[in-house]
Computed example of a mutant assay.
Amino acid sequence: MKSHPLYLYALDPTHIGAGGYRMGRVDLTILRDAGSNLPKVPGSSINGATRSAAIYSLPEGERQRAMAYARATIDEKNKKHPHKGGEDPVARIFGYAEGGDEGESRIGAVSFRDAEILAFPVPTMLGPRWVTTAHLLERAGCSKVPRPASEEQLIAQAGAAAPRRLNLGWLLLAADAREIPFPETAKGLPVFEHIRERLVVVHDNLFPAIVNSNLETRTSVSIDFETGAAADGALFTYEATPRGTLFRGQVDLDDGRFPDIAPAALPLLEKALSLACTLGLGAMTTRGFGRMQFALVK
């Protein structure tokens, strides 16, 4: 098994819906991790968008072949595939399940892990700062990460403009300027150096509150197509993680069970990820949501 860290930098706000309406501050909430209550991009969302984009990343002849197989897969009977899944350029990488008595099924050679927040942008009196924790940086491969002594203190990246006190939104904390490491393998994006210079480490207990209190909340309304005005009773609100959020996930290639598929899968995977991130992940991509920059560390 070959594991590749996947970094996603949000160029637009991102809305990965939790499904259905909720009673509370907003109608449409975003998906959160059950243990930490932090927003995330689930691996299923990345996988679905990447698999769809993989079809359009193929040469013309293979693309038509893959599209015909995909149409047969979503057909109600799911029995009239033009060819076997092992012969399809996309299904053989992402897996397939064919209906009928003679249908075959196989897991994919590639799997996507949930992308969790690594650094979260927060407004301060000195401009935006990217907030993280020592635990998150250590999970990303960093060592000797400084830790705040208490919830009332933060660690700011050492530099000429390091402050003694810094506000994170509505919180004002004492700041200690120290060198904060950042994943060396995360240099696939030009914005990484910008984030590293403005990195802030807070206490683990404080991080969920900072993230959830600085999410975007937007209001939309459905339009009455006859009048061109807002429809009565059609006002709704929804959450989004803000532009500038840095996520870290993982892509696994199973070269143990699929030694003939895994090496050829990586180039197609990179093309598909590029297209998927350009079109957008999650909901409301036609409303300016979901675009990403990605770095797949080899």
Rank of each mutant, 00 (worst) to 15 (best):
S220H: 11
G99I: 13
Y7N: 00
S143P: 00
V191S: 09
P42G: 08
G159C: 06
N205K: 15
L266G: 09
A209C: 05
V201M: 06
S45D: 05
P5L: 11
L246W: 01
P163R: 11
D232I: 12
N167I: 03
I155H: 08
L269H: 04
R63I: 01
D33E: 14
A115C: 11
G99C: 09
R32M: 09
C277H: 09
A109K: 05
A70D: 15
R196T: 05
P121A: 07
S150R: 02
T286S: 13
I155N: 03
G256L: 14
I46Q: 06
N214D: 13
D252P: 02
R243M: 11
I46C: 00
A70Q: 10
E216W: 00
T185G: 14
D255N: 14
R248Y: 04
A109P: 03
L137A: 02
L31C: 07
Q293H: 13
T227K: 10
D114E: 10
R25H: 09
T14C: 12
P146Q: 12
N78I: 12
E184Y: 02
A276T: 10
R287E: 12
C142T: 03
S57Y: 02
A276G: 12
A10F: 03
K298H: 04
L253A: 05
Y9E: 07
K84A: 15
A186H: 05
A10Q: 06
F182M: 10
G244M: 02
V200H: 05
A34Y: 13
